[in-house]
Design a protein around this nucleic acid. Structure first.
Length: 810
RNA sequence: GCCCGCGUGGCGGAAUAGGCAGACGCACAGGACUUAAAAUCCUGAGUCCUAACAGACGUAUCGGUUCAAGUCCGAUCGCGGGCACCA
């Protein structure tokens, strides 16, 4: 079969018949199958795209044949850094390169032959999409979920630009390899932390890989403890967060992060320490991420000269600054318990501070620092309590005397969404001298991204350099004002795109509740695991926020999630240009066709594992498909001839139904390799029946017809062609997937393995419906078994129905 | 450092709920067809020992639970991933 022409023939037919366009009339049978959309940075599809989209399309086609109205759209996550970096390198405008790349990729995706509903296509860089991304921003702003604050960002001193986290590789700029610094800048943030608890709790409801849920759980990082107030000699309160209030009596000193606002006041109170404090604050500020965040970094700090009062003992404890305390977590201040915390211990040893043990293990010597739970000592009225008891008792006591309270903290930080970059959705905000920050009125959306912009890095946002863009009037007071020069993180674009697909052409609304509630959430979402704590978390947050604002009624975007594995180069390494091990799908698609390429991706790997590419496998798939073609050819040549249903027919019928049953189960779990193995077994059975004489040709032809329906989701073009060869007029995808006939799977007798003392000694066919005693009797008489039982007693006989018999003799 | 996952033939990989390890395929070997090759079809094969039958060993390693362990439990080694001064 000439795959090339067969493929284009059927692609054209599918497009003409619009059979892949979602039919809203059947919305109650909907199944929203979504693959993560592509990023058009490279101009061609790579094996990873194919591996994501090909097999998932087979799943979608399978579900369609099962009667679901499948909605499977495709689009492009078109804004972003790679296009801009490419522009900086080559001078080609990001819009031009992106549009060109999209054109190529669209064609390649169409050649794949997936049942994408192209009428729903979206491109996030187009006005009719980013208008609504800006709309989303405004809603979050109205709801108080978008706010501005000064924060530390990644700063490349050589490129003079802010870098996104993903552009920082091992603490270095991905482009020039300079060590990235931290810089204070005023930025827009989304208050994802407001949803920390719900994002954590709802993980239980999701049919997602455990690993991904765990990663999100750890990322959210809930910890329970206490906030405790230490009164500072300046009259201010130093509030610390601790998960170990049970060690409160062991506090030796209090530590503030160098960025803590109180530092300024302490410096004024202790002018004699001012030089030291200044030097330390500067030292901490200049440290780069690699050093500052390394656990191996030596603990450093400085005494402020000030003291604080212990809330329970009333003792004075010194106040230190140290950069092992992070301003961004908890309260930015810590109570140091040298005896029971490794960091505090190291610090106390270095600066010769006292170490007070307050946790003891009964009957055991402990070595400090001892960070486990134990029994309290040196803790006044709390002596003798266990860790859990003490944590509760001390918290209760602190609450009573107004010196603290129980508190839950999260590791999750608010989502920084400002990017000092050009190629993104402009932030729809205006800065007015009179009115401050003013949102762009919704009727004025989109705030259009101007084409004519110098996007080479200059230390400020590229849009700031475009006076025409920046100048505007304040919507509130009408006076001259300026636009926000930043653009939105591309993860904002992708946080809601699944809602746009069903209504991609709606120019009045981003989406409507009526339709969104019916089509969404996504039933099955398939994409790479690398998005676990980024896209997948952001999308959950935005979904919950939109629900709370009344725009939708559900709170989770993706009910079920599958991660495909990664296809590696033949050398077992990740594919990369520098390694020179990149496998081009085009080469194989040209040589074998897209169906065969897709089949190999499904058959050669465990879908969620992936693995190294191997050329030999694909040739065998090609041969397998040819075998099917020969069977179809044979079926078209045979004259119909009825014959009785004998044992050969029964055997073939069993093989067929066994395959249907197994495939129907395995497809549900994205187990494509075993599904195809079952098709192969069935093909083997068909060939055997044929070579054994093929008496009942009518039956044989019906079996071939079932084979094609069975195989259709895996090789769509090829199967359509075969279906046509068999004399059918309509698309095979209008057919129902073959249903299992359980009757055909009932066997009169089943092979049992016979064990004596757990060692296999024989195999025997045993009729269905025998009692255990009858089975034991039959088995004991077997020539391979009987001698082993002579002169011995059978103590026990274990029968596992349909599988084995184990005789325990002694 | 902490958390999580994974280790099965020469290779990719199978193995419901603890029940015949190695499905399916690749590569390999032998055979049929052919002047020959390719293609196709048939047969074989975990390893060791054996002429064969039989037997022994076998899912990273060591130990345990069980009539029965790739699967459960404990320890060790190796690989991969995530987090990384989170108080």
């Amino acid at each position: 079969m000439d795959m090339k022409s067969v493929e284009s023939k059927w692609q054209a037919k599918w497009e003409k018949s619009k059979q892949n366009v979602f039919n809203k009339k059947n919305i109650d049978k909907k199944l929203y199958v979504l693959e993560m959309f592509s990023y058009p940075s490279a101009s061609k599809l790579h094996v990873g795209h194919w591996y994501n989209y090909g097999p998932t399309d087979s799943y979608a086609r399978f579900k369609k044949m099962q009667g679901f109205e499948v909605f499977q759209p495709m689009g492009f996550d078109a804004f972003g850094l790679p296009a801009e970096n490419f522009a900086i390198k080559t001078g080609i405008h990001p819009k031009d390169s992106t549009e060109k790349n999209i054109l190529t990729m669209e064609q390649q995706l169409k050649n794949m032959g997936a049942m994408f509903d192209w009428s729903a296509e979206i491109k996030t860089c187009e006005e009719n999409y980013y208008k609504w991304t800006q709309w989303l921003f405004l809603q979050l702003y109205k709801k108080g979920l978008a706010y501005r604050k000064e924060a530390l960002v990644n700063w490349c001193p050589s490129c003079e630009t802010v870098l996104a986290n993903e552009q920082v590789i091992d603490g270095k700029c991905e482009r020039c390899n300079s060590v990235v610094l931290r810089k204070d800048m005023t930025q827009w943030f989304f208050k994802i932390t407001e949803y920390a608890e719900e994002l954590l709790n709802d993980l239980d409801k999701l049919d997602w890989p455990d690993k991904t849920k765990l990663m999100q759980k750890n990322w959210i990082g809930r910890s329970t403890g206490c906030e405790i107030h230490f009164e500072c000699e300046t009259g201010d309160t130093i509030t610390v967060f601790t998960t170990r209030p049970d060690t409160l009596f062991g506090v030796n000193y209090v530590v503030l992060a160098p960025e803590h606002p109180l530092v300024k006041k302490l410096r004024e109170a202790h002018p004699e320490k001012a030089t030291e404090i200044d030097a330390y604050v500067q030292y901490a500020a200049e440290a780069n991420d690699i050093d500052r965040l390394s656990t191996a970094r030596e603990k450093t700090g400085v005494f402020t000269g000030a003291y604080a009062t212990h809330p329970l003992t009333g003792k004075k404890v010194p106040v230190y600054l140290a950069d092992y305390v992070l301003y961004s977590y908890g309260t930015g201040a810590v109570m140091a318990v040298a005896a029971h915390d490794e960091r505090d211990y190291a610090f106390a040893k270095k600066y010769n501070l006292p170490i007070t043990q307050v946790i003891q293990k009964v009957g055991e010597e402990i070595v400090l620092p001892y960070c486990e739970d134990g029994i309290l000592v040196n803790s006044g009225e709390f002596d003798g309590l266990s860790g859990d008891e003490a944590r509760d008792a001390i918290a209760v006591h602190l609450t009573k005397i107004g010196k603290g309270s129980k508190k839950v903290n999260y590791r999750l930080r608010d989502w920084s969404v400002s990017r000092q970059r050009y190629w993104g959705a402009p932030i729809p905000m205006i800065h007015c001298e009179n009115c401050g920050v003013v949102p762009v009125p919704e009727k004025d959306l989109p705030v259009k991204l101007p084409y004519d912009v110098e996007f080479r890095p200059s230390g400020r946002s590229p849009l700031a350099g475009n006076a025409k863009y920046m100048k505007c009037t304040c919507p509130k007071c009408g006076k001259k004002a300026e636009r926000d020069p930043d653009t939105l993180d591309t993860f904002v674009c992708s946080s809601w795109y699944y809602l746009r697909y069903p209504e991609s052409k709606n120019d009045k609304h981003p989406f409507t509740k009526e339709i969104a509630d019916k089509i969404a959430p996504v039933d099955v979402y398939v994409g790479g695991a690398e998005h676990a704590c980024m896209h997948l978390l952001y999308a959950r947050f935005i979904t919950k926020a939109l629900r709370d604002m009344g725009y939708i009624s559900f709170g989770e975007p993706f009910k079920r999630l599958i991660h495909q594995g990664i296809i590696l180069g033949t050398d077992g390494n990740r594919m990369s240009k520098s390694r020179g091990n990149v496998v081009s799908p085009d080469k194989y698609v040209d040589e074998f066709g897209s169906d065969i390429f897709r089949l190999y991706l499904m058959f050669g790997f465990s879908y969620t594992e992936g693995g190294p590419w191997n050329d030999d496998g694909i040739k065998s798939i090609s041969r397998f498909v040819e075998r099917i073609e020969r069977l179809v050819q044979k079926a078209t040549e045979l004259q119909d001839a009825e014959a009785e249903i004998g044992s050969a027919e029964k055997e073939l019928d069993y093989a067929k139904n066994y395959a249907i049953k197994a495939i129907t189960r395995d497809m549900e779990s994205f187990s494509f390799n075993t599904s195809l193995a079952r098709v192969m077994e069935y093909v083997n059975a068909l060939q055997k029946y044929d070579s054994d004489g093929c008496k009942n040709t009518s039956f044989f032809k019906a079996c071939i017809s079932d084979l094609i329906r069975m195989f259709a989701p895996f090789a769509p073009h090829f199967s359509e062609e075969c279906w046509e060869m068999l004399g059918n007029k309509d698309s095979v995808f209008e057919e129902e997937y073959p249903l299992v006939n359980e009757q055909a799977l009932v066997k009169d007798e089943v092979e049992y393995a016979v064990q004596v003392n757990s060692k296999i000694k024989a195999k025997v066919m045993i009729a269905e419906g025998l009692t255990n005693d009858q089975i034991q009797e039959k088995v004991s008489a077997l020539p391979d078994v009987a001698p082993l039982l002579e002169g011995k007693t059978v103590k026990k006989c274990i029968v596992v129905k349909g599988r084995l018999v184990n005789l325990i003799v002694g």
